[in-house]
Structure formats: structure tokens, C-alpha cells
């Protein structure tokens, strides 16, 4: 980070060429990353008949909101959105609690058998029962097709727990802990009153990781949920975007111009639903982005 400011040397011609080439390549790369997103935003505000008038859309053509207003009328999307919010909120809270309860003890030198416990957790990063045995466990627990199967499995990400542990080890001053012990605090109070208030960056980053994972997941919903009323947004999205179904269109019998109009709505809706579904994550992203480097980078290397 400090490289730029500390550097005071005369740039040679070769250096200048290097900088220009590098700058141009990075700019092209950034545009490639951004363009698909810009395209979808533009398309979502466009008149569906005009999206493909020009091959690559640079701004909306024939501005219209239709896709967005249709979303508000689509029951499947609304319910899916609500379900996704519930699963993500509850799931992420559980993730954070379970991860913290693992990371904190493992960060304390007072814990005995730390090597064993660490091994106990990390083994699961390399060995897993696989799809079917996991399915059978959930079946045995009787949580299939309930909200619980969307929330309880996957409560602990071992890699995340290790990142958090490392963060605690490196960022909580030991004197603070010692003096709290001397004052008679137990570990629960210590965690709550001393450690967590000092750990905003890692908590923010963990919340982002877990939250995004929950919000974006369709696989668990696909295998474990049968009732449409419980489907999260991503499953509905899959029907709309990939299987080409149009939400709860009970309008199969439409004919002629109504049919054509439905097709058009369907086309815009595809773009606007992508925006709506990605919006919560993208709004949250800048808030957390500034913590990425601080919060996890340290942990990532040493962990």
C-alpha cells in the first residue's frame, strides 16, 4: 500500500511504457467485468422489442419500467423474495453465532486440547459424506421440506472459523484479556464485552460471506424443498431465467396479442428480476468491501 508514496525515483522510458500498457490492460479488464452487468441494467429498463436492435446495448433503448412493475405483481417472485430474506437472515445469524463460538475458544491459549479440536474441524474440509449420506441425515432428522433444512445444515464454515480465529489471535491485545480475567470476568463476558466490540471488520466480512452464500444458494432448496410456497428466490429465478417458465403464469390460455404481450413481459422481466435479486447483495457490498483487506487478508495468509 505504502509503495506509491515511498517511491521517489525517476521513471525511465521503459517504466513509462510499462505503466501505460499495464493501465490500458487493467482498464480493458475492468470493462469486461462491468459490461455484462451494465448490459443487464440497460436491458431491464429497455423496451423489450428494442433490446436487440443494436448488438451491444450501451444505454436503455425505449425506456420502460414494465419489468419492475410486473415483478410486484408476480406472486412467486414476491414469496420467493420473502423466503430468501427469512432464510438468509436466520441462517446468517446462526452462522455468525456458531462460527464465533468456535473461533473464540480456539483463539485462546487457555484452551487445552486445541490441536485435537482444530483437527476435528479441519478434517471436514477434506472428507465429506457426500450428497446422498447428507440427504439421509436430514431425512432422518425429519427436517426435509421445512425451513430448518435451509438454516441448520451448513451452520459452520470451517475455513471462515479459522479466518476468525486468526483475526482474534492477532487483533485482540493479550493484556486486555489478562486484565479482564484478573477482574474476574469469565470467557463469555470477555467474548461479549471485550472481543466482539473490537472485531467489527471480521464480523462484517463473515456476515457478507455467509449472507451471500445463503442468498445465492439454490442447490439445497432444490433438493430439500418440495412446496412452492417455501421456495427461495433463486429457485424461482432458475425457473424464469433458465427453464424459461414465467413465474405463476396461470395465463397459459392467452391468445393472440395477449400471448405476444406476455412474451414481451417475460423478456423484460428476465432482466429486471436479475437486478432485483442481485440488488441486496450489491447494496451491502460497498459497506463491507472496505473491510476485505483489513479483515480477512491477515487471517488468510497466516491461517
Amino acid at each position: 500500500m505504502a509503495k506509491q508514496s515511498a517511491m521517489r525515483y525517476t521513471r525511465t522510458k521503459g517504466d513509462k511504457v510499462f505503466d501505460v500498457v499495464n493501465g490500458v490492460l487493467i482498464t480493458i479488464f475492468t470493462l469486461i467485468v462491468l459490461y455484462p452487468l451494465i448490459f443487464v441494467i440497460n436491458a431491464s429498463f429497455s423496451d423489450p422489442t428494442r433490446i436487440y436492435e443494436v448488438p451491444l446495448l450501451l444505454w436503455p433503448r425505449g425506456f420502460n419500467w414494465r419489468g419492475y412493475t410486473e415483478i410486484l405483481k408476480d406472486k412467486d417472485i414476491l414469496i420467493g423474495f420473502k423466503n430468501a430474506v427469512v432464510y438468509t437472515a436466520l441462517g446468517t445469524v446462526i452462522n455468525l453465532v456458531v462460527t464465533t463460538l468456535g473461533a473464540y475458544p480456539l483463539s485462546r491459549k487457555e484452551l487445552k486440547g486445541k490441536g485435537f479440536f482444530t483437527l476435528f474441524f479441519t478434517v471436514t474440509m477434506f472428507f465429506s459424506g457426500g450428497l446422498i449420506p447428507t440427504y439421509l441425515v436430514n431425512q432422518q432428522l425429519g427436517i426435509i421440506n421445512t425451513i430448518w433444512v435451509m438454516i441448520l445444515p451448513g451452520a459452520l464454515g470451517v475455513y471462515n472459523m479459522i479466518l476468525m480465529r486468526t483475526y482474534f489471535q492477532q487483533n485482540i491485545p493479550n493484556e486486555l484479556v489478562e486484565s479482564a480475567y484478573i477482574d474476574g470476568a469469565n470467557d463469555m463476558q470477555l467474548l461479549w464485552k471485550v472481543v466482539l466490540p473490537l472485531s467489527t471488520p471480521i464480523i462484517a466480512v463473515m456476515a457478507m460471506f455467509y449472507g451471500v452464500g445463503r442468498w445465492n444458494d439454490y442447490f439445497n432448496a432444490m433438493i430439500y424443498l418440495q412446496d412452492r410456497s417455501k421456495f427461495p428466490l433463486q429457485l424461482i429465478l432458475r425457473e424464469i431465467l433458465i427453464q424459461g417458465k414465467f413465474g405463476d403464469s396461470a395465463n397459459q390460455t392467452l391468445q393472440g396479442s395477449a400471448q405476444a404481450e406476455l412474451m414481451m413481459i417475460k423478456l423484460t422481466l428476465k432482466y429486471s428480476v436479475v437486478i432485483i435479486s442481485s440488488l441486496p447483495v450489491l447494496l451491502f457490498y460497498p459497506v463491507v468491501a472496505k473491510y476485505f483487506e483489513k479483515g480477512i487478508l491477515v487471517g488468510a495468509i497466516k491461517g
Partner: peptide, 18 residues
């Protein structure tokens, strides 16, 4: 505290391994 993640891992990681 450690018991909580251990229980989760036992149920959803080790049980499927069995």
C-alpha cells in the same frame, strides 16, 4: 462454547461420513 460448533459438525459432517 466450543460444544455448539462441535454438535453441528458431528451431526452434519461426521454423521454423513458414517
Amino acid at each position: 462454547m466450543l460444544a455448539v460448533p462441535i454438535i453441528f459438525v458431528l451431526i452434519w459432517n461426521y454423521w454423513p461420513m458414517y
